[in-house]
């Protein structure tokens, strides 16, 4: 199992690759994870990173499963790519003006090199799977039709659901792109609604900044912060107890938090620009989808709390949707090893 690494950073992708290896082992295979250090700044560094991956060699395995750029550039005859996401600064984030790669002949050359190397790897892989967001970009930028493969929950049994405790949960990494600040502002438009923010902060300044924001908005008495990495059991307990889960990142591929909420029978509040999560959260069906503005988000939170039996219905629909997709590890392994 090949992927990349930024030393000491552990997020969803790292959890997935770790779980994939464990699942392969439990299914009787010999599997090992190797994650190659990856740096993307300054932008010229990206060329070196590709040279590194292309220059490495690996033997003694029947199959390689590669998850991320540039690890899938390590040559192997029997490689399956499960693309969690592209190096988006060279693709959609560049188009959206949110890339660190500059708009110049030099930036264009770097982008062209990444896209050419990607194209080559994607076309020569034995099979190409992708998360829903990555699959859309493969279609758009490479005219490639990958099989969509969701990352299964590793511990669905923890998300058994439970009595609704009358609060909105915002779980996961706490950072600028995740926009927990927007949810705090939204609380000012949702009288009486309580919010719990739980997850590891991206930087040391984040906890203080969010607390100050809550005070400025006059909602500090209705927000509970738990800014740290939560063990799975603790996270699941919060999900099981909330009325609804709010997940409003700017354009992320990750759908894990929404899947956990659905597994627990809880609806999801998200926003129209949140990305991959919109594939499974539909407005009025399995949750509420609104514009990424404090007013609309506040209204959505207030609606969930005001009509908790309706929230439960939306959550139940989410759970059925998840069951219908049958997103399980045995299914995923069958495809990756097929």
């Amino acid at each position: 199992m090949l992927s990349n690494r930024v030393p000491y950073i552990r997020g969803r992708a790292e959890e997935l690759s770790f779980n994939l290896v464990r699942q392969l082992q439990e299914a009787g295979h010999q599997a090992e994870e190797m994650r190659i250090p990856f740096s993307w700044s300054p932008t010229e560094r990206l060329i070196e990173e590709m040279v590194i991956a292309r220059s490495l060699r690996l033997t003694n395995v029947d199959r390689v499963i590669a998850l991320k750029f540039p690890a899938y550039l390590i040559p192997h005859d029997n490689q399956v790519i499960w693309l969690l996401h592209q190096f988006r600064q060279a693709y959609d984030l560049f188009d959206a003006g949110q890339s660190h790669i500059e708009r110049s002949p030099r930036g264009e050359a770097i982008r062209a090199a990444i896209r050419a190397a990607d194209e080559d790897a994607f076309r020569s892989a034995r099979a190409l799977y992708a998360t829903p967001g990555a699959a859309k970009r493969l279609d758009r930028y490479h005219d490639l039709h990958a099989h969509v493969l969701f990352a299964p929950l590793n511990d669905p049994e923890l998300f058994s659901g439970g009595d609704d405790g009358g609060f909105i949960l915002a779980a996961g990494r706490v950072g600028h792109a995740e926009r927990q600040g927007l949810l705090i502002e939204a609380l000012a438009h949702a009288p009486g609604v309580r919010l719990r923010v739980a997850g590891p902060p991206d930087d040391a300044a984040m906890p203080g900044a969010l607390q100050a924001l809550a005070e400025r908005c006059g909602v500090a008495d209705r927000v509970i912060f738990d800014l740290r990495f939560l063990p799975r059991e603790e996270l699941a307990a919060l999900v099981n107890e909330c009325t609804a889960s709010a997940y409003i990142p700017f354009d992320e591929d990750s759908v894990g938090y929404a899947m956990e909420a659905f597994q627990a029978g809880k609806p999801v509040i998200t926003s129209t620009d949140s990305g991959g999560v919109l594939d499974i959260v539909q407005d009025g069906e399995t949750g509420l989808v609104t514009a990424p503005r404090p007013e609309t988000l506040g209204q959505a939170m207030a609606r969930m709390i005001a009509d908790r039996s309706r929230a439960a219905c939306l959550g139940a629909a989410g759970r059925s949707l998840l069951a219908a997709h049958n997103i399980t590890w045995p299914k995923a392994l069958e495809r990756l090893l097929g």
Binding site: R5, P7, Y8, M34, I36, L56, R57, L58, T59, I74
Partner: peptide, 10 residues
């Protein structure tokens, strides 16, 4: 704080 990195090699 320790991180172990194994890189494949032949």
């Amino acid at each position: 704080s320790v991180e172990t990195i194994y890189i494949p090699a032949v």
